[in-house]
Design a protein around this nucleic acid. Structure first.
Length: 339
DNA sequence: TACCCGTGGCG
DNA sequence: TCGCCAAGGGT
């Protein structure tokens, strides 16, 4: 019943009318290709991150660094500061490493294989850039596509075990013509109609082709393995204030919040570090923050510094930008500056 | 394979 | 208030 070619044709027709307008996107039939730099930058930012959260960051980055060569010339600290708040900070470190590699080789490679050799570019992102920026017929599989395909073919296997099967099914839909628009159409469909909860099947262009819809189980797919409960961890952070300055440190380059600007803290994994300086530390309250795999209750201590610090460095308040902090540290700062 | 790695919005 | 989830990659 389901002709494998009818689905991409219907999808393309729907996309031509309903494509989302996004700052990094070239509309269908624009007559020119997308800029690989802007495609790459947006794809990195969009990894596990919503379109709404990315928009202002994309705008800011492309203003500061209009080309990959401009970005390659930026400092680590500046890129980390501009990325602050977006999360998954390994992306920012890999972003800069990738920009420098691309600048050194004179531009982005135009095949999926060569793209995937660059830092921060994996199976999804390499396929997306190859299809969208270089018109390569690659199959782009993200969370949206997994969901759309699982429903179209009524795949009952739970994720992540179903991953290989979903990729194989998605490949059967990839066209030779306009593969980039096809990829973006699949993702737009997943983001606006074939949504995780209460999908809008009534207005779906693939309604007649959807096996899950026919069985009445669209909203139940894709099935997912049970996830482990998140442990609660405890920690302490110290915000030391000197004359028009605050005690900060740059966190170690790897691990949680790696490379970000922070206040000295315990390790919040049981390690029991001492305060970074002698002072009359005062407990001003606690902030809760939920990471991917654990929750954290962080006790916030403040004090005017009275002796030399054993950790961190003093930063003048005029140079200190709270929005250069990751979310957890921003919460602590906001608590500390309240009366 | 199974972890590790942020954040904000939404029902 | 809380669990779920979002254009994943690295190890």
């Amino acid at each position: 019943m389901r002709d494998p070619k009818v689905i991409p044709e219907k999808l393309r027709a729907w996309y031509d009318r309903h494509a989302r307008i996004l700052p990094w996107r070239v509309p269908p039939h624009a007559g020119h290709a997308a800029d690989p730099y802007r495609v790459w930058l947006s794809e990195i930012m969009l990894q596990q991150t919503t379109v709404a959260a990315v928009k202002s960051y994309f705008q800011r980055f492309t203003e500061l660094w209009p080309s990959v060569d401009d970005l390659a010339a930026a400092s680590d600290a500046q890129v980390m500061a501009e990325w602050a708040g977006l999360g998954y900070y390994a992306r920012a470190r890999n972003l800069l490493a990738c920009a420098r590699a691309v600048a050194a080789m004179g531009g982005f490679p135009d095949t999926r294989r060569d793209l995937a050799a660059l830092p921060g570019i994996g199976p999804y992102t390499s396929a997306a850039i190859a299809a969208i920026a270089f018109d390569r017929s690659e199959t782009v599989v993200d969370g949206n596509v997994e969901r759309v395909v699982a429903r179209l073919f009524a795949v009952q296997t739970p994720l992540p075990a179903a991953k290989a099967e979903l990729i194989a099914l998605a490949e059967t839909l990839t066209p030779m013509r306009r593969p980039g628009d096809h990829a973006q159409a699949m993702m737009d469909l997943g983001a606006t109609i074939c949504t995780p909860r209460s999908p809008a099947c009534g207005i779906c262009p693939l309604l007649e082709d959807c096996a899950a819809r026919a069985q009445g189980i669209a909203a139940e797919l894709p099935r997912k393995a049970l996830k482990k409960p998140k442990p609660l961890r405890l920690g302490t952070v110290w915000i030391g204030l000197a004359e028009a300055a605050v005690l900060v440190e740059t966190r170690p380059p790897k691990g949680l919040l790696g490379g970000t600007l922070a206040f000295p803290s315990t390790g919040w994994d049981g390690s029991d570090l001492p305060p970074p300086a002698p002072a009359e530390w005062r407990d001003i309250g606690m902030v809760r923050h939920v990471f991917t795999h654990f929750a954290l209750d962080l006790t916030v201590m403040t004090a005017p510094l009275t002796g030399p610090a054993t950790r961190g460095r003093l930063m003048a308040l005029r140079d200190f930008r709270p929005d250069a902090l990751p979310g957890l540290m921003r919460k602590a700062w906001n608590l500390a500056r309240q009366p």
